[in-house]
């Protein structure tokens, strides 16, 4: 099996994805990624000329289908406390997090 994702590339992806994995998880997930890429590589065999546009959606959003955009007016959400109450740590309506990594400029 062609192995497109090396352990080094995999470690880089894990970093980008903001994850931490155990060795067992890494082994399974890297194996599945490589299997899926073998399936995905079937796409390379399809003749595609540049005139075929990419579709972000299946259906076309015309002016008949889409509602007009609403006016750009501030609409406050009335129950903001219900949202704030979901945060794991809150102090005086501020969400509390640990130190944000930073470097001090000279």
């Amino acid at each position: 099996m062609k192995e497109q994702i090396s352990p080094e590339l995999f470690a880089h992806l894990v970093e980008l994805a903001a994850l931490e994995l155990t060795d067992a998880e890494s082994e399974y997930l890297r194996g599945e990624l490589n299997s899926q890429l073998n399936a995905i590589n079937e796409l390379e065999a399809i003749p595609l000329d540049a005139s075929i546009p990419p579709s972000l959606h299946g259906i076309t959003f015309t002016s008949q289908v889409s509602a007009p955009l609403r006016s750009d007016v501030w609409q406050p959400y009335e129950r903001s406390d219900a949202i704030l109450n979901q945060a794991p740590q809150v102090s005086e309506r501020y969400i509390v997090v640990p130190d944000i990594p930073h470097t001090t400029l000279e």
Partner: peptide
Amino acid sequence: QDLRSLYRKSRAEGFGLQPKL
């Protein structure tokens, strides 16, 4: 230690294998 580590550990413990994949 910091916010980045909070993201990593929370996501590592919170997500199962399929979302991670």
